[in-house]
């Protein structure tokens, strides 16, 4: 079982590079705006959320929560 941090790192890297690739391919003219746009619409939200989830995920188990007296 992979740690959540690792999973999110992979997802962020993957979606981020897809975004970057679409942007670069559009700039050099391989992708037209529609194709690059569709890729970006799918990959950009995934990138944003996985990046945040990556930052947020702790590296070790949290404290035992206060369960009440």
């Amino acid at each position: 079982m992979m740690a959540r941090k690792q999973k999110m790192a992979i997802l962020a890297l993957l979606s981020g590079s897809v975004c970057l690739l679409a942007g670069v391919l559009h700039t050099i003219g391989t992708f037209d705006l529609v194709a690059a746009g569709i890729v970006l619409i799918i990959a950009f939200p995934a990138f944003v959320l996985s990046l945040f989830a990556l930052w947020m995920a702790g590296e070790h188990a949290g404290d035992i929560p206060f369960m009440g007296y």
């Binding site: 705006l33 529609v34 970006l40 939200p45 995934a46 959320l49």
Partner: peptide
């Protein structure tokens, strides 16, 4: 949350294009 970001990304692309 994903849909919210996706639709406004799409809207931005529509304005750019």
């Amino acid at each position: 949350v994903i849909i919210a970001i996706a639709i406004w990304t799409a809207a931005l692309l529509v304005v750019i294009a």
